[in-house]
Every structure is written in structure tokens, then in C-alpha cells.
């Protein structure tokens, strides 16, 4: 669990405004306030990869993340199913 300052320090060119905007847009959903867990840290790493390395652009981010979320939701469900059987 880390604060927004620590989060931004971990990814050097990351501004707190970026993080707050992502939270506002629902791309990032910290459990409570501005305290971030490990999954959020890794999601920030993914968002930065998508935006900077893959040149995705802020507008495309929600689309890609939405699709990824569906893929992972399907994978979790699939795993839960195979566990049941």
C-alpha cells in the first residue's frame, strides 16, 4: 500500500495529475482514496507502457484497458470453471 507520491516516484516521469485523471476516468480504481495496492502499481506500469512505449494516446487507453479487463475477467471465470469441474 503506497501513497500517490510514492507511486509517482516509482515511475519517474509520472505526474500526480496523470494518476488523478486516470482515477477520475475509472482507468485506475484504488481501493480507498489515494492509497494504491500492488495491482494498482502494476496497472500503472501497464498504462505507462501502453501510452509511452506503444504510443497509444490517452483517448485509446480506456478502449484498450476495457478490452483487457474483459479478457482477464474471462480468464478468471474460465479458471473458476475448470476448478469446479
Amino acid at each position: 500500500m503506497i501513497t500517490i507520491d510514492l507511486l509517482c516516484a516509482r515511475f519517474t516521469p509520472l505526474a500526480p495529475e496523470d494518476v488523478r485523471r486516470w482515477v477520475a476516468d475509472g482507468l485506475l480504481r484504488p481501493e480507498e482514496g489515494e492509497v494504491f495496492g500492488e495491482i494498482d502499481v502494476e496497472r500503472v506500469r501497464l498504462i505507462i507502457d501502453l501510452r509511452d512505449t506503444l504510443d497509444l494516446g490517452e483517448d485509446a487507453l480506456p478502449v484498450v484497458l476495457g478490452l483487457l479487463d474483459q479478457v482477464y475477467a474471462l480468464r478468471r471465470q474460465l479458471r473458476a470453471l475448470t476448478r469446479e469441474d
Binding site: R29, I39, E42, L46, L65, G66, D69, Y72, A73, R76
Partner: peptide, 21 residues
């Protein structure tokens, strides 16, 4: 990057997509 490890686990439910999903 290892977001997938969390997203694949139960913790990933937080980013579980839209409600009608």
C-alpha cells in the same frame, strides 16, 4: 510488467469490466 499476474488472480475482479458483463 506483471499486471497480468494480479489481473488473472481474484484481485483482478476490481478491474472486472462493466456491470452487465
Amino acid at each position: 510488467p506483471r499486471y497480468r499476474e494480479y489481473a488473472d488472480s481474484d484481485a483482478g475482479a476490481r478491474y472486472g469490466g462493466t456491470p452487465d458483463f
